[in-house]
């Protein structure tokens, strides 16, 4: 089995936030993946998806599902992250007032991703963009 899905994400457009995560959830349910594992995968994907909408200009999500794992790459064009370690700290957030009004900006997203993935890789270049890779065994 080798399934691939791609999604485009527009910065600032919260109305579509969660569409990728929702689709992936439906696919994983059909594949009979355990509910706890599904929850871990979609929570981290949702957080990463929201981060593109909240902090970047635009991005692309590539989800690859195989027999034993789900690998997701989220690549965005945006301001990038200067200090990734600091951004990972719980409570650290540069979210704008508009983003906070939508219910985000607790500074918990990256830590939630870290907790819910079996492997998390973040690379970023200031002024260019950020790439987040999420991996979970299924």
């Amino acid at each position: 089995m080798n399934l691939e899905y791609t999604f485009k994400v527009e910065g600032g457009n919260f109305s579509k936030a969660g569409v990728a995560s929702s689709d992936v959830k439906k696919v994983l349910k059909k594949l009979n993946v355990g509910p706890k594992t599904i929850r871990r995968i979609v929570v981290s994907l949702y957080e990463a998806e929201i981060n593109i909408i909240a902090h970047a200009y635009r991005g692309e999500i590539l989800v690859k599902i195989s027999e034993n794992k789900v690998e997701t790459t989220l690549k965005d064009s945006g301001p990038g992250i200067e200090d990734i370690n600091k951004a990972m700290e719980e409570g650290y957030s540069t979210a704008s007032p508009e983003v906070r009004e939508m219910g985000f900006g607790a500074g918990m997203g990256l830590s939630n991703m870290n907790k819910n993935t079996d492997k998390l890789e973040i690379t970023s270049e200031v002024g260019v963009g950020t790439t987040v890779k999420l991996m979970n065994w299924i």
Partner: peptide, 10 residues
């Protein structure tokens, strides 16, 4: 907002 429901879904 829609995000509250999405969050519950996830």
């Amino acid at each position: 907002n829609l995000q509250a429901v999405r969050t519950a879904e996830m």
